[in-house]
Structure formats: structure tokens, C-alpha cells
Nucleic acid binder design. Structure first.
Length: 257
DNA sequence: ATGTCCTCTCTTAGAGGA
């Protein structure tokens, strides 16, 4: 079973790229972030025609998350991260597909930092960590996939010294990620490629993709039930080079059945 | 500081976000 995560940066502006990627790689499950579309503007017909079922939580202009499944039922569990009824951003959706709990997340960017946006990021991170702990102690296989907006270590940025003040790499951010990982989760890409340079995002500026000046900020966290089933993991880097591409590339894992 | 690209609007230019 292949599960992918892809920050599409606008699902309607990106639809040809998304459909081509789905057709060429056919993931069984695809977690999407940054739909940048309200609920009613989700391109359901095109997704259905591509052979996918979908659940999504849209929002006008910003955020928005979706879970797609190829010829499989999607049982929605929740579409809001618990813990703050005032938080109206569409940044989390969770479902059960083929016996696996899939959490699809778009953690806040948090820039500029420090400031209210960074505070919101850290609050969201805290709530997510609490929810992850509850999922972790459950009996089911769990994967938490998405755009974490976290550069975990120096190995995950082309020039880490340029990012020390940035909300994606500040000590508080890395510390929060460490705390989450300390619950016992496996960073799937890092487990299989411990020393490799792996990027999932390349800025639109200054030909970052051409220079491979990237960041690894999209992650797959697995609980032990899924860790033992992990076979392969990678990034569809070539997709970032397509015309009208997102600034992220799709990331994927393969699990034994 | 800047670069680019998305979406939306007090809409064809500018703002906000990343």
C-alpha cells in the first residue's frame, strides 16, 4: 500500500499537475494540503474521474486539507484538530482507510517569528502533540502525514545557518518536533535514508529547484504498528520540475500488506 | 531587501500569505 502527501498550493490552479501525478504514480492514499479553496470549489468530479474517493475540509483563500483514496472507502473520523473551538483554520482531517488511521495535517508556517503567527504555530503544535499521544496509545496502525513546516535537523536544509531565525527552524520549533517524536513515532523518510540529503520543498525564488536549494518539511510519522510494515519511502522530485508545479514535491511511503 | 506564485477583491492592481 502506497500513501502519499502533497502540499498542492492551490488545488484548482494546480489541477493538471495533480491529475498527472495521480495518473503516473497512482498512490492508494493521497493526503493533500493547501487546497486554497472553499468547500464548494473542491474539484470533486475531476478527482472522481481519476478513480479516487475524497473527503476534504476547505477554506476560502487559505489552508484546506483533503484525503483521497484509490478505489477504497474513506471513513472520516474528524475534520478539526481537537482542543480549540476558536481555531477556524482548515488544517487537519483524519480518516480510516484500509484499517489505517490517516491524519492529514498542515501545521502553521509561523512566520514572522517571534509574533502572533509564531504563537499560533506553537499552540497548534501543542494541541497536535496531545492528539498524537492519544492516537499513539490506541491499538490501530497510525500515520500522521503532511506539511509540518518543520526542518527537523541541519541535514534537512540546504543552508541551515540561513534558517536559524525562521519559524521553520527556530529552536522552539525543533524542540516541539523532538517532543512529538519522543512519544515513539518513526520519521519514515529518515529511517530508510538516514544520511541522505532529502528535500520536499523548493522555493519559487532564485531557481531554488534548479540549484536543489531545498528543505525537508513534509513528513510521515508512523506508530510501531506501521513502522514494522514500512518497505520504502521517497520524494517525487521530478514533479516539482513540471510546469505550474507547487513549491512542494509529493512524498510517499510503501507499506507491506 | 529581494526574488515567485497562489488566491481574493472595494477586481485587470494590489494585498496577504507562503
Amino acid at each position: 500500500m502506497k500513501i502519499a502527501t502533497y502540499n498542492v498550493n492551490g488545488i484548482n490552479g494546480r489541477l493538471p499537475v495533480l491529475l498527472r501525478w495521480l495518473e503516473e504514480t497512482t498512490p492508494d492514499v493521497a493526503c493533500l494540503q493547501e487546497l486554497k479553496a472553499p468547500e464548494e470549489k473542491f474539484p470533486l468530479q475531476a478527482i472522481t474521474d481519476a478513480g479516487y474517493n475524497a473527503i476534504w475540509h476547505g477554506q476560502k483563500s487559505w489552508n484546506g486539507v483533503a484525503i483521497l483514496a484509490h478505489n477504497m472507502e474513506i471513513q472520516e473520523v474528524r475534520r478539526v484538530l481537537p482542543g480549540d473551538p476558536e481555531d477556524l483554520h482548515s488544517r487537519y482531517i483524519e480518516a480510516i482507510v484500509n484499517g489505517i488511521i490517516i491524519g492529514c495535517l498542515y501545521l502553521p508556517n509561523g512566520n514572522p517569528a517571534p509574533g502572533p503567527k509564531f504563537d499560533y504555530k506553537m499552540d497548534w503544535f501543542k494541541r497536535f502533540t496531545k492528539h498524537a499521544a492519544e492516537l499513539y496509545v490506541g491499538k490501530m496502525p497510525v500515520v500522521l502525514a503532511g506539511d509540518y513546516n518543520v526542518i527537523p535537523t541541519e541535514l534537512d536544509a540546504y543552508k541551515p545557518e540561513r534558517w536559524t531565525e525562521d519559524a521553520l527552524f527556530r529552536p522552539e520549533t525543533r524542540e516541539a518536533f523532538k517532543k512529538l517524536m519522543a512519544q515513539g513515532w518513526t520519521d519514515a523518510l529518515r529511517k530508510l535514508h538516514p544520511n541522505e540529503t532529502i528535500y520536499t520543498f523548493w522555493d519559487y525564488f532564485r531557481d531554488a529547484y534548479g540549484r536543489n536549494a531545498g528543505l525537508r518539511i513534509d513528513h510521515f510519522l508512523l506508530n510501531p504498528q506501521l513502522d514494522k510494515r514500512l518497505i520504502n519511502a521517497g520524494v517525487d522530485m521530478n514533479v516539482r520540475g513540471w510546469e505550474k508545479s507547487s513549491d512542494h514535491g509529493p512524498v510517499w511511503i510503501e507499506l507491506a500488506d
